Simulated scan of single mutants.
Amino acid sequence: MWRPRICQAVEAHGQAGDLARATGNSHTEASTWNNLGRARFKQGRFEEAVVAHTRAWEMFRSTGDRHRAATTRNNLGRALRETGRPREALAAHASARAVFEEVGDPERLATTWNDSGLALAALGRYDEAVAAHLRAVRAYADLDDRHRQAVAANDLGSTLLSAGRRAEAVAAHRQALRLYKGLADHYGEEETRELLTAAGQVTGATGGGQPVAGRPGDAVIRDASGEAGSP
């Protein structure tokens, strides 16, 4: 069902962009380019997403809207990462993060940290990637945004697994599973169980189970959620 809706969204964004151009509303046109980029990203058409987000970023900059430009630049970074350009993605996330730090937007700041972690992991810079994901998990916990905290915890787990830190990866995914269960997000639960399976962890109906080795991962996650010291 979601594919037809995305196709409809693409068509609607195109029509909105045409109207904005016809009326000379550059800010609205920039918004439609950004929305089109997000829709193309969901379709897996990442090169087209890069084109759309780049256009949106340039237009927001021309209007002087630094905040929306930064949001779009971060979206551009995600698309760049998916097209195999993690260095450019990392630069985009860093640029956006600087603006969010300056204007005091903690939610989007947390998002740039998590996206930076994904770009760093794509570059094989796993220690830096883990640190970035941990900052995102902690920030979302402080914001009481449990859904995004779960997403960041799963991204952390995937990065830890890529780094060969299997026990810590399992602990991260277990935290995400607890969060999703608390939110009654069954899709998130199922996705997390698949990640746990990939990490070599078998869970029961309650999401329990033990890490495959040791307990260091639990300490990492406690630190990230603010329940024990800080890294």
Rank of each mutant, 00 (worst) to 15 (best):
T83W: 09
V170C: 08
R5W: 13
A213E: 14
V212K: 10
I221S: 03
P216V: 11
V130E: 02
R68V: 07
V51K: 13
R68Q: 12
N34S: 14
S31C: 10
P4E: 12
A171E: 00
A94D: 08
V137Q: 00
T112I: 02
E102G: 05
G157L: 00
L80C: 04
L196D: 00
P86Y: 04
E88N: 07
L134T: 02
G157I: 01
D185G: 13
A224H: 02
V130P: 00
V220E: 05
G64H: 05
Q201Y: 12
M59F: 09
G24L: 06
E128D: 07
H93P: 07
A56Y: 01
R146F: 07
N154T: 13
R148P: 12
A92K: 01
A9G: 11
G204I: 06
M59E: 05
D155G: 08
Q15D: 15
L19C: 11
H27N: 06
A171F: 04
E48N: 09
K181P: 14
D142C: 13
A20M: 04
S158L: 08
A79S: 11
V99N: 02
D142E: 15
R174H: 08
E58A: 10
S62D: 12
L156F: 08
K181F: 12
L179Q: 09
G64V: 06
Q210G: 12
G64Y: 10
G214S: 12
Q8M: 09
A224C: 06
G84N: 11
A49Y: 03
T111G: 13
D144N: 15
A153L: 10
T203G: 10
D115N: 14
T197A: 14
L177T: 07
E190W: 11
G117T: 00
G44T: 09
E48A: 09
R87H: 08
H186Y: 15
A205P: 14
G64R: 08
A176L: 06
A132V: 01
A39Q: 01
T72Q: 02
V50T: 07
A163R: 03
R138D: 04
G208K: 14
A219W: 13
P231K: 06
Q201E: 13
D142S: 14
V51C: 10
A150Q: 09
G217A: 06
A9Y: 08
R97P: 03
G164T: 07
A70Y: 01
A152H: 04
A69E: 05
L123Q: 12
H53D: 02
S158W: 06
R174N: 04
A96T: 04
L36H: 05
Y180V: 09
S158I: 07
Y140N: 08
A70P: 01
T32R: 06
H147P: 05
A20Y: 03
E11R: 14
R38H: 11
A22P: 06
T32N: 14
V170W: 00
H133D: 00
R85E: 07
V202D: 15
F46I: 10
V170F: 05
Y126S: 05
G17M: 08
T54D: 11
E190Y: 12
A92G: 04
I221P: 03
